[in-house]
Amino acid sequence: MTVLDALVEIQREQDPTLAFRYSCRVGMCGSCAVVINGRERWACRTLLASLKTEAVTVRPLYHFPLIRDLVVDMAPFAAKMKAAGAVFVAKEGEEAFAPIGRNVKERRQIDGAIECIGCGACLSACTMVGWNEQYAGPAALNRAFTLMADSRDGAGAERWPLLLSEDALVRCHGQANCTEVCPMELSPTDSILKLRRKSIFQLVRSAHRLDTSGATVVA
């Protein structure tokens, strides 16, 4: 029996008004993320037996406004995606749409980070999100990483200022709580580190551009 089965049974037998979210029952939609025995997990993929405790505590995700019982307001999740510019924008002006090959480095990088289903567990686990509401947080930065690695994406120039702002890459303290709890076994920490590495080149490039434009004036 999973934690979700137990919640459903309580709802049917004891408290018909007990509010919690779930949809697919099978770990594909990411609706049922809650904090179980102190750790973010999906109720549908957590077997009660595996918890090995007599009583199991379930509470709503941290760092989201509470609506009722186990239901939280997920609006901050979407807001953070927006704050990190985590939306694909196709490059303009290319004659044919350029696909990404099957065994190239770019595809491997993206594949390693793409499977986020938006459950919010990482935001709940992240202490930096807890301290700073403005911080874009692990899910959005992870998505931004896949887009920055995607040669078909054309929004890099607009995204860099967002990523280099005070409330994005620089906020992560590398505690890796997000990676620890991610049920999809993704590593937002890794994505953030890779983006930081890229950002150094980006900063050098933009500094260099300033130089050359200066040089042009002299010439």
Binding site: A90, P99, R102, D111, I114
Partner: peptide, 20 residues
Amino acid sequence: VKELEAWGALFDRTPDGRIL
């Protein structure tokens, strides 16, 4: 399907780079 790819979807590919 091709339109989805133009909007950012990534499909598995054949060895010569087309959609598998």
